[in-house]
Design a protein around this nucleic acid. Structure first.
Length: 554
RNA sequence: GUCCCAGUAGCUCAGGGGAUAGAGCAACGGACUUCUAAUCCGUUGGUCGGGGGUUCGACUCCCUCCUGGGACGCCA
């Protein structure tokens, strides 16, 4: 039962009937949109249909509304009223709420999942940090968001695959190798000049030290080129393992770790270049190989292969995206930092040049994260003097708070992360507020069991005993959940789920203060247990989308 | 100079053609003999950055300007 669909269909039927009777002129009708009115006195649902239809029907909105209302037929409808400039407000019978709750209970743990995605294959690629150092807080935002988006789209019925793209080819990784080599030589007492673009982190020194611990000085004898090749692999393996562990402890896992280097080994880069040339979308100029991206809306053409024969990162990105679409993903979602946004037009151009609809590539751009403590901007880690790492952040505020804070804001807002608030185990902290609601419900069930009461979630309780506004508001909110999941997935906006969970927790806390579950008449206890069980399930469902624990106790 | 994001309550942010613009925090005042007070109830708090336009209706769409952040490489 989707009450909005039922109401919309009833409106359409009523309008059609009025047109048949000649009361309204025949014309194309606008879509009937149902919304929750801003005030309870305006009913349970409302539509602006009459005002929207006024245009095409060339009629007075209130007259249209009147004609529709007179012909409305709907099982749960108590009455409908014209309001304001032409809104139709629907007032539903109370039985509707009880039927709604019963349906939520019947659906069990899958309540909230929708089939909107129709099992469409979607890939979400995120984090994809260079394996040259630890993750910082910006990666944390991408990681929390990406994993939540994947969970969300899965709940909305998409077939989602999570991928991490490993930048294991090119300059950065050569610099990594050269940096390790320099530290290695340094530790063995050799005079070295550190590479200009080298990595100065202490993790590089540690890697060099581990090489010495394992193999001593024997790489001194090796040719520099061979030595760097060996160090490259050692460093890469170490860094990738560290990345994987850091992300796992943040609740983020991937289905696929895709190697950039493999694109060269499989000749995919060369193949993509050949294809672009054959299609006439790429050409040689000034010794370099160019994509004619201006044909696809980019500002200027872009170099794929430099005049020194070395491919740019764009070359692997082209091959990579070709590979993604060849794997059969209907939609490919990339989550990038704001500093890469200028790269979007050329990437879309490349996708179009390869012959794919560029709309199938969605690039979500996340804005910067700033940490605040004591009202001051935190730029550097106190410990290392470098940027604050994700691991340090998790140690500081905990995994759940970190995830929740990253997700609760819309992506395109710059995020001010309040460390004090995230750390506080108090009512100020939104993540605990939501978790506490879940824990409180768990506590009720514990108390219930101690009191020897048996609750069967499959049994039909006398739900009509749920008569207070506390209870009814809660049911209404629970009823909104599937649509919220759908809309959040459509908008790629997991923060809506965080917001919903917070609002639901608020309604529950009010209910909790206003109504007792245990120690009232048995029938009422049973009805309230049913309500509370449904609330707990929805809270858990929402929290699991966010990747935040739903604790039994706090 | 061009492009992207943002500008909404003291602070952090939702909302995205419709009814009286919302939430959290902060401030102030209340509620524990009762399932967890990490909670609840109430009060205070707004020229939705400025100016034009489109519309029956604009915080929302268009134009323009201002402010803050970011991007504009044969770097990644």
């Amino acid at each position: 039962m989707d009450i909005k669909e039922l109401l919309a269909a009833a409106v359409v039927r009523a309008a059609a009937a009025a047109m048949d009777e000649g009361i309204l002129p025949k014309a194309e009708l606008p879509e009937v949109l149902l919304e929750t009115p801003p005030e309870k006195s305006f009913g349970d649902y409302a539509t602006n249909f009459a005002m929207q239809a006024a245009r095409s029907l060339k009629a007075n909105p209130r007259k249209i509304a009147e004609a529709v209302i007179a012909r409305l037929e709907m099982p749960w409808l108590d009455r409908a009223q014209i309001a304001g400039p032409g809104f139709i407000n629907f007032y539903l019978k109370q039985e509707w709420l009880y039927a709604l709750l019963q349906e939520i209970l019947d659906q069990g743990e899958v309540y909230g999942n929708t089939t909107a995605g129709q099992r469409q294959k979607v890939q979400v690629e995120f984090v994809s940090a260079n394996p040259t150092g630890p993750l910082h807080v910006g990666h944390g935002r991408g990681a929390a968001f990406g994993s939540a988006l994947a969970n969300l789209m899965q709940a909305a019925g998409y077939d989602v695959q999570k991928e991490f793209y490993i930048n294991d080819a090119g300059n950065q990784i050569d610099n990594l190798a050269a940096s390790v080599e320099a530290r290695y030589l340094e530790l063995l007492g050799q005079a070295v000049t550190f590479p200009e673009d080298g990595y100065h982190g202490k993790d590089i020194v540690e890697t060099a030290q581990r090489i010495i611990d394992n193999a001593g000085s024997r790489y001194l004898m090796m040719s520099p080129a061979d030595r760097r090749e060996v160090f490259k692999q050692i460093a890469l393996d170490e860094k990738l393992l560290a990345l994987r562990e850091d992300l796992e402890s943040f609740g983020v896992t991937f289905d696929e770790w895709f190697s950039e280097r493999s694109l060269f080994e499989d000749d995919a880069v060369a193949a993509a270049c050949r294809q672009l040339r054959e299609k006439g979308h790429a050409y040689d100029k000034d010794g370099a190989f160019w994509l004619r991206s201006t044909d696809f809306g980019d500002d200027k053409d872009r170099v794929i292969i430099r005049d020194n024969g070395i491919p740019t990162y764009f070359a692997s990105d082209i091959a990579y995206h070709d590979n993604k679409f060849r794997r059969g993903f209907e939609t490919v979602i990339n989550i990038w930092g704001a500093d890469h946004h200028g790269y979007i037009p050329r990437m879309k151009a490349a996708v179009a040049a390869l012959g794919y609809d560029p709309a199938r590539l969605e690039v979500l751009v996340l804005q910067m994260v700033s940490l605040y403590q004591g009202g001051e901007l935190v730029k550097m880690s106190k410990r290392t003097g470098q940027g604050v790492t994700l691991t340090e952040l998790i140690e500081e505020v905990g995994r759940d708070a970190a995830r929740y804070f990253f997700i609760m804001r819309s992506l395109d807002s710059q995020l001010d992360f309040d460390l004090d608030l995230a750390k506080s185990h108090s009512n100020d902290n939104p993540v605990y507020y939501v978790q506490y609601a879940h824990a409180r419900i768990a506590s009720i069930f514990r108390q219930m069991a101690e009191a020897g009461i048996v609750f069967d979630s499959g049994a039909k309780a006398e739900l009509c005993r749920l008569s207070t506004p506390f209870e009814q508001d809660l049911i209404r909110k629970l009823g909104d959940y599937p649509e919220e999941v759908f809309a959040a997935a459509r908008d790629r906006a997991p923060h809506r789920i965080a917001r919903f969970a917070h609002e639901l927790a608020g309604l529950f806390h009010s209910f909790y203060n206003g109504c007792r579950v245990l120690g009232v008449e048995p029938e009422l206890t049973m009805a309230r247990l049913a309500l509370v069980a449904a609330t707990q399930r929805v809270l858990k469902h929402a929290l699991s989308i966010l990747g935040v624990d739903a604790p039994e106790k706090m």
